[in-house]
């Protein structure tokens, strides 16, 4: 069916608000070469959101939504947290279920869609925070990797439980003082990108969202590999400027600093994934 489901019946076009008409006429559908460079001109698939002013996570969401190679056939599964404040405003089929079960729900969706539509591409992408991915949802996340589910998991790592008011998470760096770690976190940040590799992911990337173009490439690779090979994982640093005490215009600078250290760009590609990526490059899709 693809983006036909966004086509408004001609007879009722005149009663539709502008933003919905824009989605049909000014958004980028059906073009696998779409990317972040459409952002300055096109209607975005994310309308408006209630995240804080200057939140790097919202930048990440813009890039990801602009980079999906086939948004019209993409299902987004998310989890509880700041990200869940954004998903209702996305022009795709999205699911919010429970806190931590996102990879399990995505597994069910992906397998059934593959079975119901054997001749179609249906991408399933999980977008969730660090608490959802690595703490409460660790079991579901890892098991979906073990089972080789063909889904892309994207973790927005802001190193804290932001939505609940700033509690320490498994991805908080050691020593950092947050609520529930009033003496500073007692143990190291979980190197989840490495765990993802060991757990069977075929493409893993760790980066900040300081470079839109880089996010685009990573997301496309992750989705193409997941489509054909197996699970892929993208670990994005999206600092919570509020909880680490920065101003609303400091987010980009914070990420640029971390680019040089614990979030230095890192990429793992399995042999099977390499083949897919090379092919997509030849096809001009990467």
């Amino acid at each position: 069916m693809s983006y036909k489901i966004y086509e408004i019946n001609e007879d009722l076009l005149d009663v539709m608000p502008q933003e919905i008409r824009d989605l049909q006429f000014r958004a980028t559908w059906g073009n696998p070469k779409r990317g972040v460079m459409d952002l300055p001109y096109s209607k975005e698939l994310i309308e408006e959101h209630s995240l804080c002013a200057g939140c790097p996570e919202s930048m990440a969401l813009r890039y990801i939504l602009a980079s999906l190679p086939s948004p019209e056939d993409t299902i987004i599964v998310n989890s509880t947290g700041c990200t869940s404040l954004v998903f209702p405003h996305i022009a795709l089929h999205t699911v919010h279920s429970l806190f931590g079960n996102q990879n399990a729900v995505a597994s069910g969706i992906k397998r059934v869609l593959e079975w119901r539509f054997p001749d179609k591409v249906k991408d399933v992408v999980v977008l969730a925070g660090d608490g959802a991915t690595v703490d409460i949802g660790l079991d579901c996340t890892l098991q979906s990797f073990f089972r080789q589910e063909k889904i892309t998991t994207i973790c927005f790592d802001n190193e804290v439980y932001a939505n609940t008011g700033g509690q320490e998470s498994g991805l908080t760096v050691k020593g950092h003082v947050f609520k529930m770690a009033p003496k500073g976190k007692q143990w190291d940040k979980v190197p989840f990108w490495q765990i993802a590799i060991d757990s069977g992911c075929h493409y893993v990337a760790r980066l900040t969202v300081s470079s839109p173009k880089r996010v685009e490439t990573v997301i496309k690779k992750a989705i193409y590999v997941a489509r054909e090979v197996g699970p892929t994982y993208v670990h994005l640093y999206t600092p919570c400027i509020l909880e680490i005490g920065l101003n609303s215009d400091d987010g980009l600078d914070e990420m640029r600093q971390r680019d040089k250290e614990r979030f230095a760009f890192f990429e793992y590609v399995s042999d099977a994934a390499k083949e897919v990526i090379e092919r997509k490059k030849e096809e001009g899709l990467l």
Partner: peptide, 13 residues
């Protein structure tokens, strides 16, 4: 949730 039915913007929760 199969991206075959409108509406596009749709939260299952």
């Amino acid at each position: 949730i199969d991206a075959e039915v409108p509406p596009g913007r749709f939260l299952r929760d």
